[in-house]
C-alpha cells in the first residue's frame, strides 16, 4: 500500500510521520502530482495560517489536485480547514470539498483561545471512529473551527459545538491531532489506512 503525505508549507509534519512509523506504515512525503494521484491513501496535514497555506497550494496547483482525488484522503487540523468552503482566518476561500465554513471561536470569559488540550468527542459516525469508546478524548490546538453540518462525523464542544470530524465521499477530516492523541488517535489512523 502506498501512503502519501502531502508536502507543503504548513508546519511540522514530523509528528504525522512518526505516528505512521509507530503503527508500522510506510509513507512518502511529496508534493508531486503523479505521486499523489498514484497513492492508495493520501494524508493532508497542516499546522499554520490558512491564507498562507492556501496561497502556496494555489501556486503549485495542488488546490485543483486535492479536491479531484478519488482515493481516501485524510485532512488534519489546518488540512481539514482548507478542505472546507471558506475560513475566516485571513478571509480565505478554501477548496470547498466540505460544504461548511470555518470561523474563529467567539471570545467568551473562561475559554482561552486557542482551544488547547484534550477534549472529548460525541455523536461519532463513519468508519474512522470504529472501535472507539463513546466519548473518546483527543488532542486539539486551534483557534478556528468548522461549523456543524450533515457532513459532521464527530462533534466537540468548546465555547460552541463544532465539527471535530467531517466526511464526504472519499474525503475524511479531523480537526484534532490524531498523530499525538494517544491510543485513540492511533486507532483513527489505523482505521483510515484500512479503508
Amino acid at each position: 500500500m502506498k501512503t502519501v503525505i502531502i508536502k507543503y508549507n504548513a508546519g511540522n509534519v514530523q509528528s504525522v510521520m512518526y505516528a505512521l512509523e509507530r503503527i508500522g506504515a510506510s509513507y512518502l512525503l511529496t508534493d508531486d502530482e503523479a505521486e499523489i494521484r498514484s497513492a492508495d491513501k493520501v494524508i493532508f496535514p497542516g499546522v499554520g495560517e490558512a491564507s498562507t497555506a492556501m496561497a502556496y497550494l494555489r501556486q503549485r496547483g495542488l488546490d485543483k489536485v486535492i479536491p479531484s482525488l478519488k482515493q481516501p484522503v485524510l485532512g488534519t487540523c489546518v488540512g481539514m480547514q482548507l478542505l472546507c468552503r471558506y475560513s475566516e482566518e485571513g478571509d480565505t476561500t478554501c477548496m470547498g470539498v466540505f460544504d461548511v465554513d470555518v470561523r474563529r471561536f467567539p471570545a467568551q470569559p473562561g475559554f482561552k483561545v486557542p482551544h488547547t488540550g484534550w477534549n472529548s468527542l460525541n455523536n461519532l459516525k463513519g468508519p474512522l471512529t470504529g472501535g472507539l469508546p463513546e466519548n473518546p478524548y483527543v488532542y486539539f490546538v486551534h483557534s478556528y473551527c468548522a461549523d456543524i453540518s450533515p457532513e459532521t462525523t464527530a462533534v466537540c464542544e468548546y465555547v460552541r459545538s463544532f465539527s471535530a470530524m467531517l466526511q464526504k465521499d472519499n474525503f475524511y477530516a479531523a480537526q484534532f491531532h490524531a498523530e499525538i492523541s494517544g491510543n485513540i488517535g492511533q486507532r483513527i489512523l489505523e482505521n483510515f489506512l484500512k479503508l
Binding site: Q14, S15, Y18, A19, E21, R22, I180, S181
Partner: peptide
C-alpha cells in the same frame, strides 16, 4: 522518544535559536 510516545511532548533546555528549534521539531518534538 518520538518512536514510542503517542502523546504530545515538549523539549526544553538551552534553546536559543531557530536552528535549535528546527532540529528538535524535526527530531519529533511537538
Amino acid at each position: 522518544v518520538a518512536h514510542v510516545v503517542n502523546i504530545p511532548f515538549t523539549v526544553g533546555g538551552g534553546i536559543s535559536s531557530k536552528a535549535d528549534v528546527s532540529a528538535l521539531l524535526n527530531a519529533g518534538a511537538d
